[in-house]
Design a binder for these strands. Structure first.
Lengths: 144, 144
DNA sequence: TTGCTCCTCACGTCACGTGAGGTGGC
DNA sequence: TTGCTCCTCACGTCACGTGAGGTGGC
């Protein structure tokens, strides 16, 4: 998969992906001959999509996003290790603990944002109710 | 109220407020002698705070924000007219209609965003549940 | 008078957008 | 061979940050 395709798949531009690679946010298509085309896997697509979604919805800077990218990588690495034949049950339990911590971290960020949005939505609904109340007052006291 | 105070009150910097004035997003402190200090009212604070909140939570560009600013101004103007002595009941009804449309527009934007966040939160919770299920599987089949 | 905040340039920065000119794979 | 997408500079832009040097109000 080439850069144009992945960009389209995750809803961004080739330039943005190259820029992320440039500042070290993305690992940089491995074993690429300088000047050669970058290639991406389906896993890359999935990870990048998730990261961009968090960036958009949480409104974080690219520097803060580094932490989220690190978590995404950690998640995929742990999943791979979990499913490997030779991984012991004890190690598997430890992996699950760590995966849960990653999910908790992301959920906390999302929940905080949702709280802010909920508050705003509540205010707007409140405003609508006050408008409705005014309207009732008006129709109750007809024009004289 | 001076620019440093309003910036602190709404959680931004003087530079940002000057920039918004420069690009015409904010009206520009009226009747200010060139080189003289900008002054702001409590109403300005309230409006700017609301606008910045929408910008942050909705992640819009400054160009899109112009529409939201226009709505905020419209809202305050209509409220003033509504409470004026000489406004007829018929006009008051019309004002309520327009205020409701403004609130509807803002609610729709907020609701859309909330939907996206809800979807993300649901996925993260789902992920947590799958982790819990895996954990149950592991403890059910003890290490041999 | 002394701080403090304000003012206007004006250059710097972050996160990309946008050509300019050239190379690579179906 | 012809399009198409890719590549690397490199300059432009948007939304401000950050001094530089000077002025205004308690």
């Amino acid at each position: 998969m080439r850069i144009g395709e992945i960009a389209k798949a995750v809803g961004t531009t080739p330039r943005t992906i190259r820029y992320y690679e440039e500042i070290g946010l993305l690992p940089g298509s491995s074993a690429r001959p300088s000047g050669g085309h970058r290639t991406y896997t389906d896993e890359d697509v999935e990870q990048l999509r998730e990261v961009l979604r968090l960036k958009d919805l949480l409104g974080v800077s690219l520097d803060e996003l580094r932490g989220l990218v690190a978590d995404q990588h950690l998640r995929h690495a742990l999943r791979g290790e979990f499913h490997a034949e030779e991984t012991s049950p004890a190690r598997r339990t430890a992996i699950l603990d760590e995966l849960e911590r990653v999910a908790d971290r992301q959920l906390e960020l999302v929940a905080r944002r949702r709280g802010q949005l909920d508050a705003l939505e509540a205010e707007l609904r409140d405003r609508q109710e006050r408008i409705a109340a005014r309207r009732d007052e008006l129709s109750a006291t007809p024009a004289r």
